[in-house]
Design a protein around this nucleic acid. Structure first.
Lengths: 253, 253
DNA sequence: GATCAACCCTGACGTAACGTCAGAGTCAAG
DNA sequence: CTTGACTCTGACGTTACGTCAGGGTTGATC
């Protein structure tokens, strides 16, 4: 009844390797008795313990922590599991976004069966997008996030390139007239171009506009790569000039 | 224009650590130029390469493989990504089942707020279940799998325990009458109990019954722990006796 | 009793992607 | 010339074992 098992037998019984049993032994997770010669001997009741180890390991809990859990008895087990579930859910988020990145890149490059170099570019683009979306979330209300999600279909690579060019041009043009009157016709034309570009992103939605404002106010806390990308548009005089021009425009209307 | 960066600067620019850059350098993934003194110097164009590395790493591709991909040029990139997507999807399967295991165990133990020891038992139960379902899938048709999924809500721990007991009792009873006539009333009564128990699982569905048959035929290929669990029911004489009894029952009907 | 195959043991190194010192050199400023 | 801020390399640590390597143990056979 109280059958004894050698490592090999016990390992097969439980579906693990001999080396794993050695490992658990050394870590103090499952210490079998020994023969005179030092051979490991497992009892059937050790199987229960081993199954627990395997199960917790399957949940992604590190062996050291499993040992601690056994050590402290079963108290706190459900708490540990709650925490582990959160850990796993976060991992799943990352996995999902990696998978989505590949999927979207495949979708975007498949139609033309473009050269392989294009897909890597697309991957980077998609990942950066996800990054930005994830980070900029905190500035927008739930509703604004949903609206942005809807408007995302406008963000084709072509459009993005066009917008970047238009913003760059506009900035250059504004910098050229910084000395002039913000209420002048020239300045008003520039302000109109600015407004149109902003609306190209917000779609006129006030919630999105509000979020965008919060994001702009918080620019000291932007991550480094974001600041880097925004550097061409960092000239504060330009922003102030446009502020005044927009105000002047409103005043005369 | 062709700005030079020291490690620290370059690392911050790209959002990685200095140590990571050292690492990529040693692995030959991104080898910067050096000053006389041996300091690493990065050009802006190195940033592109680094971004590619980070992106591929985000997708879970090991650095060595990334190096190979760069080495072979971009050819085969999309193929690698297809493969990687499959790898990631498999990982997600595992993650999902781990999360589901915790969720189900929490759900099952929450109502009574049972002692912590119960939840671990439940976890093991759920994982074993998933294991079995996953493995036994290959014996059943799509339709049968769906039917089984529906009938799963009957598999409460209580029911499972009851079924195990009934099967054990039935086996004992059959073994006691192995010498008698399979057509006898006693044998027919046992055959009826047998049939009822089988139908308790199949629900009378012919597709499930067919899958169950295939599974039984393939028992030499069952995994070790399954064979272990089925050992109490391995007496072939019992199976043969029931076969004959069921056949006899059909013949007389 | 010797031998042989089949097991078993421990110890050491390898894996992936860096983190974390430790000891030592470099650079610009005061 | 010192000081503080950087940088370098090398070595060890991390996780959960896999994979030898060198060396005992056991039970069966000759």
């Amino acid at each position: 009844m109280n059958q004894l098992y050698h490592v090999r037998e016990f390992a097969q019984l439980a579906g693990v390797t001999v080396r794993a049993l050695h490992h658990y032994d050394r870590l103090g997770l499952l210490k079998p008795s020994r023969t005179q010669a030092g051979y490991r001997l497992y009892y059937l009741r050790d199987l229960e313990r081993l199954e627990q180890i395997v199960a917790l390991k399957f949940l992604g809990i590190p062996l050291k922590q499993i040992r601690m859990m056994f050590h402290r008895g079963t108290n706190g087990m459900s708490e540990s599991l709650r925490m582990q579930r959160r850990v796993l859910e976060e991992k799943r988020q990352l996995l999902d976004s990696a998978i989505r990145a590949i999927e979207e890149a495949e979708k975007a490059t498949a139609p033309g069966n473009r050269p392989d170099s294009a897909i890597l570019k697309k991957i980077i683009e998609v990942i950066e997008m996800q990054d930005n979306m994830d980070w900029s979330k905190k500035y927008y209300s739930e509703e604004a996030q949903a609206r942005i999600e809807e408007r995302k279909n406008l963000w084709s690579p072509e459009n993005q390139e066009r917008w970047t060019k238009e913003w760059t041009d506009l900035f250059r043009d504004v910098e050229a007239v910084l000395g002039e009157d913000p209420a002048s016709a020239k300045a008003q034309a520039l302000a109109a171009r600015w407004k149109k570009l902003v609306e190209g992103f917000t779609g006129g939605d006030p919630q999105i506009t509000a979020g965008l404002g919060k994001m702009y106010q918080d620019r000291p806390n932007w991550p480094a790569n974001m600041q880097q990308r925004m550097q061409p548009f960092s000239n504060k005089k330009v922003w102030e000039f446009i502020q005044k021009a927009l105000a002047a425009g409103k005043a005369t209307n």
